[in-house]
Design a protein around this nucleic acid. Sequence first.
RNA 1: GUGACUGUGGUGAAGUGGUUAACACGGCGGAUUGUGGUUCCGUUAUGCGUGGGUUCGAUCCCCAUCAGUCACCCCA
Length: 421
Amino acid sequence: MLTSGPRGTHDITPAEVKNWRRVEEAARAICDLYHYGEIRTPIFEHTELFLRGIGETTDVVQKEMYTFTDRGGRSVTLRPENTAAVVRSYLEQKLYADSQAAKLFYIGPMFRYDRPQAGRLRQFHQFGIEAIGPAGPSVDAEIIALGVRFFESLGLNDLNLLINSVGCPKCRPQYRVVLQEFLRDKKDDLCGNCQSRFDRNPMRILDCKEEKCNRLSAGAPQMIDCLCDECAEHFAGLRQYLDAVGISYTINPRLVRGLDYYTKTAFEIQYPHLGAQSAVCGGGRYDGLIEECGGPSTPGIGFAIGLERVLLAMEKQELLDPVEDVMPVWVLPIGQMAFSSAFSLLNRLRQRGIPSDMDHGGRSLKSQMKQANRTQARYVVMIGEDEARENQVTLKNMVTGEQTLMSADAAINQLKQEMNG
RNA sequence: GUGACUGUGGUGAAGUGGUUAACACGGCGGAUUGUGGUUCCGUUAUGCGUGGGUUCGAUCCCCAUCAGUCACCCCA
């Protein structure tokens, strides 16, 4: 059957595209305001980039990537996220040469082979930003503020901002040991998943949703209490700057990110009415990533927002716009003889920049009127045989119902004026 | 990747192992000659996700497959 797309993909129809555009325009507007420039990178990259960037042990890399060998025998992967690719581009294009900080944003499709459900697709779309270069906590606050203000600009509320610090290569390994010590004698009682996490990534045990794991890890030492001086200072700075810009947050010591590159600041914005897929924005600092990708040691921070989930949240809050936004002028030929006159009038309207349309199916005047009415046309231009001969038209105002016979030129001018007014 | 539920026209849906698959909305056509939004009339699935099987016969039973939904997992 050719009547369904691959699993987990979705067609965005004209009616939906209107709302997508609104969201994308809001994203671009907020990025202009915060002085972030758009970057467009390829949809596929060398597989190696994601292995190194995201981390070979992460679920995303281990079981969710669309990886294939191209005809040249190279392994390439449809991007599952875009931070690694932006970093690669930053290095390849030497974007650091332009200024001290590369402040970038992107909007586009990402691919993860996952079991689809509401708010989780195999091809989905993210709006994300990255600030590469600056190290201080005020940038963290700026990034978070941009995200929060983005949601506000769409009219969304009820969002929760969670922040945490996941430490750095100086303090995290020590914390790991401390945590493992704490959990060692409880290990056998943890869920199977967490038992395998014990060695691989013990911090995720704190994030487990199993009740028994929660109980067992209840008194566990928190990363946030074991930060080195630098990380602790950074985290304190972040909180201070968030307070300064009036953004409220909750510190969640158990918040962990699933990608290996995160350091220090980690944050998430949740929309609680979305079921299990409630994270609508996730991000953090990645001070080791640029170096991992072969560049000079450079700090960076960013976030990604799932656009499908944003649209879902907007739908929940009835923020989606159902109305037709373009209201074309309709040109109605009456009878076969008038058709070509009508067709050239339509062309003239369009050349003057007036959105307009006509029926090509040879339908009756009545059904053409209905069609015009349905698209909420404010004006209709009728041309019958008599009008065509005299180079005249009947201009009808669909709101008031009044109509006047006038020259084609006069009608075009009036419509042009109406449009500007 | 695991578990569960679901799958009838453009939409919401009713329905039965056996002639023509309710109803509503929408779409299309019409209600005297060149006019919309109300009303009225007509029409609108040779088809019940797809492919097999059971049966004299299946949309309704069985299997597989595909897709969707929910939870897990993961994450945006």
